[in-house]
């Protein structure tokens, strides 16, 4: 059994009357690539925000690398080695590509020289090393998504949360992107991907967790999960489930 990277126990988040994440238990192990699937409004992004510290949970417990980190703010989570990207990319528009990545690197170092080295390494990994002096505001969507990943990687995370990184990419951009993520994983980074592009997740993930209405409804190897009755029902309604 490999090391436990992340564990949520009964984690719950309500917005007014809506329970976005409903006492969810999740375990992520070292070096996994876990795909998090679910229909629109299933609570995937809320779960991400809870793990990344952007939102505090109402109840439940969050453990990272064996330590209780429930209620820790976002910047602390990043410093601890949990990096995230945003569903709608958020480049620091007025800064260059290199400066964007350096901000991420500064999560773990004070030294400008170290930050630059780490930022350059991360940009190299995602194939943006030719664009270091470009302003982030003038990048294409595909490049912005790569920058988002590079910035997170520059903070030297052990756990990387990717929120819908492949949505909106054209097929020519998609395959290199999957390759990049495989590379990152090979370098020892555990990855959780939230994704709508199902076939990308099938290619990438070693395990899949499906949530619907804030609850985990299925979990397992990609092929078996996608054919499970509960998942088909959640996506298409009971009429389509083959009994």
């Amino acid at each position: 059994m490999s090391t436990l990277m992340l564990r949520t126990t009964g984690i719950t988040k309500r917005f007014g009357g809506v329970t976005a994440v409903d006492s969810l238990d999740l375990e992520i192990f070292e070096n996994e690539i876990v795909g998090l699937l679910g229909p629109n409004g299933a609570g995937k992004s809320t779960l991400f925000n809870l793990i990344a510290g952007a939102l505090p949970p109402d109840t439940g417990r969050l453990e990272v690398f064996g330590e209780d980190v429930t209620g820790q703010p976002a910047h602390r989570m990043c410093q601890r080695g949990v990096a995230r990207t945003f569903q709608i990319v958020r480049p620091l528009a007025g800064l260059t590509v290199l400066e964007n990545a350096m901000v991420g690197a500064f999560a773990k170092t004070r030294s400008v020289r170290h930050a630059r080295e780490r930022a350059e390494a991360a940009l190299d990994l995602v194939g943006l090393s030719e664009m270091v002096t470009t302003m982030a505001s003038s990048l294409t969507l595909g490049h912005r998504k790569r920058l988002e990943v590079a910035r997170a990687l520059a903070s030297q995370p052990q756990l990387l949360l990717l929120d819908e990184m492949m949505a909106g990419l054209n097929p020519a951009e998609l395959d290199p992107f999957i390759e990049i993520l495989r590379d990152v994983n090979r370098q020892g980074v555990t990855i959780i991907v939230v994704e709508h592009v199902v076939h990308a997740v099938m290619q990438l993930a070693s395990r899949i967790v499906v949530i619907s209405q804030g609850r985990k409804i299925s979990e397992g190897l990609p092929a078996s999960v996608m054919s499970s009755r509960a998942v088909v029902e959640a996506y298409l309604g009971d009429d389509f489930a083959i009994s």
């Binding site: 703010p73 910047h75 620091l92 991420g104």
Partner: peptide
């Protein structure tokens, strides 16, 4: 020319992104 300046610029550009990148905004 130091980390502080980069972190301030990050906060100016997008505070939520800055927090996600480890900046105590």
């Amino acid at each position: 020319s130091n980390r502080f300046g980069y972190q301030l610029a990050a906060v100016r550009e997008d505070e939520e992104a800055a927090r996600a990148l480890g900046v105590n905004a």
